[in-house]
Each structure stands twice: as structure tokens, then as C-alpha cells.
Design a protein around this nucleic acid. Structure first.
Lengths: 241, 241
DNA sequence: CGTCTCTTTGAATGGTATCAAACCCGGTGG
DNA sequence: CCACCGGGTTTGATACCATTCAAAGAGACG
């Protein structure tokens, strides 16, 4: 069995790795103008597990970059059920989709003790030059997000519960790898309920899917600890696009 | 029975109604600077039913505004199945999500004889001022699209097939109303297969859902002709958010 | 070591996909 | 004008997967 250090969240080493410098990891709009973004960075602070970074419907004052730990955004629907919208890892930016209305459209909750950098919105509008840079960055992230959501929609329609979980795990693994974090063996900071909610399923089905993936030899699971055993086979079997 | 004029697609009256002037109908970033966008408008042409406006993976040369008629975008997935991504009505802009890569990510197919205005991409980068305006416009549309996709994801997870169809029809009705087109009684330009694909369901289920909505007195259906009979009750019963 | 929360597993129910056949409508040609 | 044809649509029967309800099991923490 693997001995896991207790509750040590994933962390970025330096500002150079910080997501605000390349808001969308797959974007290459920016060459190396990290310096130009420095003026936008505000103060840092930590958020405890289950604490909210911001509330739905509250006015937006900043963008938030996850420095360490992880978050989920979720909204409460008309029936009072919580729906998980997205998970955020170190380097991810929270609040982009709220910029237009300058009002948060979801709750942001820390999944573990986490550290945050702020990018106050009042820095915008000071200088057209840097405004334009950050605007294009945001645009690029939005494009990525649109693509990701499209992916999710596609999956929700075609793939069964097990395939959706497999995709989720592979995507998570890819994101961890992009951040130079352990991507083959990791600890999920979110519970089965959150995963199920994100995948538009139920916690029982999610749990069964974990078991199924383990039974078929793709992964090893023990509670929140996941090890991806046969990554290529898993992609071959479950990844559609 | 209603006598329907044969195949007369919905149409915009003037450039003032054109979507490029307020790319996202719910956005209010622009005050009234329609004039500033005029230089961006390129030539017009028509597309026949089932003809493609552009192909997936082809390089993007322009944005396309639907002037009359309607379109669907769809992609062929790994299994060779067509997946409908979005439907476009007069005033809608095609190609926004492809801007980052300047490469189309889906096929765009005319659902009926349609008319198109182009916004060639080579107009961009000439003038920072107008670039910035169009950039913000696009950003605003992206925000709207993100919201819509989020809505769809939500529905795919929670609502059953009938509720999803109801939502689809109500949303379509709203979009027609925004364009000052008949919104209570209209002719669907897309077939059951396309609707089913968009809703991540099957044509049989879509058909049954139409029947169910009619049986319960919410709508009247006769092939592609739809009349919304009890709009408020339908919203009350099916619309989640 | 006990308690609480989260997770796993089981059995029954229900919605949707699938397979199959009949039907309707629009268009064509006699 | 009517008969016919073909694509699209409706409806029916069955099978399967996911949800739901229920209970037992594992892990975290004091």
C-alpha cells in the first residue's frame, strides 16, 4: 500500500508556473511577456477546506488564480440541488466567465486548504496596452473553456457512466502533467458526490464506475487515491475524440 | 389546419437588425456604434439547403452572419456519427469559436436556402481601435455561449428527454421573438434527427417527446410545424433555471 | 476505540436506446 | 387529379443501463 502524506495539496513552485502568465495552458498567444502582467497581480491568501472563495450572485472584484490546492465551482439549481460546474487546479483562473456581468454566477469552494493569488479588476482600464494583452489572454481561455464544455456535452450524450469517469480521470491526469505534478498516481481532492455531480450522474454510479475501471485493470483505487495503471489502453478504450 | 407558405425562411429586414451589430443579443457592451463595424462587413451570398458554409478542419477566413435561413454546426465523432453542436438563426454569427486557431472545428450546413454576410478576418489587425471593439464584442458573445452551453450541460444531466425538448422549443421561441419573428407558431427547419442529436438523444425519443408535449396540451405539432399553446405552463413545468 | 462521514455494494424500478413496422407528407409522373 | 414512391416521422415491444432505496463497509479524526 502507498503511504500518502497527509493532505498535502498540489502546489506551484514559482510565479513563472502561475496560470495568469499563460491563462490557458494550451494557448500560445503570449510569447514571454510575463513581465507585462506583473502589475495586475494583487495580494495572496489562503482558503480553508469547504470555505468559499466567492458566492454566486455576489459582485466580482477580482480574478483568482489557484496557487496551491484545488476548488470547485457549483451552482444551486431550482430544485435546491448542487451542481458542480468545474474543478480548478493550481494555475487555473477562477472568475473568467463572470467578467462580462462582473457578477459571480457560481459558488467557488475550496476542496482542501488552498492558496490564492488575486488579480483585482480595478487594475483594468488603467492602460490600454496591458488591458489589451489581458483581454486577449482571457479570450484565449474562453475559447479553451468552450472547447472543454463541448467535449463534456459530447460525452454526456454518447458515453456511459464508466467512460465518462475514465475521461474525467484522464483529463485530470493530463492537467496534472501539464503542471508538472504527479499524473499517474494522485489523490482526488473531491469526493464521489462532487465527481458524480460534475459528470451528471449519481454518487453510487460513480462509485460503481470506479470499481468497474479497477476490475478491468485500468486503474487502482483506494478511496481518494487513484493510480492509473494502463493509460494507453484506457485512452484507446474510452477517449472518443 | 394552418396553411404554411412553402419554405420561406426567416429573414432579417435590415443591417440594423444584423447580429454583427450586437453579436450577442443579450449583450449591451455596444451602445450604438454600428457605424464602426461597417468596414468589417464583406460580401454576401446564398447557400442552398444541405450545402456547407464551411468544413471542419478547414482554415478560417471569415466570420459569417446569418442574414436569412438557418444553419447547423456538427462534427463527426470517432464512431462516424454526426453530432449537432448548435443551430444558427438570422443574426447569429458562425465561426467565433474557431477564431483562436483560425481553423474551423465543425461543419456548418444550411438547413434551408439561406443568405450569409461575411466578415473577412483580414480586416482585423488593420486598426487597433476597431480591432478592440470587435474583440470585446466577440468576448461578450463567447460569454453568452459559455452560459448557453452550461445551460445545456445542466439540462443533459437533470432533465428527461421531454423536458429537454420543451426547453429547446422555448429557447428557440425566445430567439425568434428577439429577432421579431413569429415565436408562437413556426416551422422547424431541422428534422427530428438533428434535434435529437443536439439534445443527445435519439430521433425516436425526440418524436415521442413531441407527442408527449402535444398530448399534455403544451404544444401542437404537425410534422415540422409547431405551435406553442401554453407557453407559461410550459416554462413553469419544464424550465429549470 | 468509538463516532461520523464517505464509500461500496445489492436489489428493484424506471427511463431511454434499440429493433422493427406502420404511417404520413411532399414531390413526381402518369 | 390521382397513384405511386421515398424520406422522414410516429408508434410499439423489448432490452439495457442508470437511478433510487437500502444497508453494510471503510476511512478520518478526536
Amino acid at each position: 500500500m502507498v503511504s500518502v502524506a497527509r493532505h498535502r495539496p498540489a502546489e506551484l513552485q514559482s510565479c513563472e508556473d502561475c496560470g495568469i502568465g499563460r491563462l490557458c495552458l494550451s494557448s500560445n498567444l503570449l510569447g514571454g511577456n510575463l513581465q507585462e502582467l506583473k502589475p495586475f497581480i494583487g495580494n495572496q491568501f489562503t482558503v480553508q477546506r469547504r470555505e468559499r472563495l466567492f458566492d454566486a450572485y455576489s459582485p466580482q472584484r477580482a480574478l483568482y488564480v489557484v496557487r496551491a490546492g484545488s476548488f470547485k465551482t457549483c451552482e444551486i439549481d431550482a430544485d435546491g440541488d448542487e451542481q458542480v460546474l468545474e474543478f480548478y487546479l493550481p494555475g487555473d483562473v477562477l472568475g473568467l466567465e463572470d467578467l462580462l456581468q462582473r457578477r459571480h454566477r457560481a459558488d467557488a469552494v475550496a476542496l482542501e486548504e488552498s492558496s490564492i493569488c488575486t488579480v483585482p479588476l480595478d487594475r483594468f482600464g488603467q492602460d490600454d496596452e496591458s488591458d489589451s494583452i489581458i483581454f486577449r489572454e482571457m479570450f484565449s481561455v474562453m475559447c479553451c473553456k468552450l472547447g472543454e464544455q463541448r467535449q463534456l456535452i459530447h460525452q454526456l450524450g454518447k458515453a456511459d457512466a464508466t467512460a465518462r469517469l475514465a475521461s474525467f480521470l484522464l483529463h485530470l491526469s493530463d492537467r496534472l502533467a501539464e503542471r508538472n505534478l504527479p499524473a499517474r498516481q494522485f489523490r482526488l481532492s473531491m469526493g464521489r458526490t462532487d465527481i458524480a455531480s460534475y459528470l451528471r450522474s449519481t454518487l453510487e454510479t460513480a462509485s460503481r464506475s470506479f470499481s468497474a475501471l479497477q476490475r478491468e485493470g485500468f486503474i487502482h483505487v483506494r478511496g481518494k487515491n487513484v493510480q492509473i495503471i494502463d493509460d494507453p489502453a484506457m485512452r484507446e478504450r474510452f477517449l472518443l475524440t
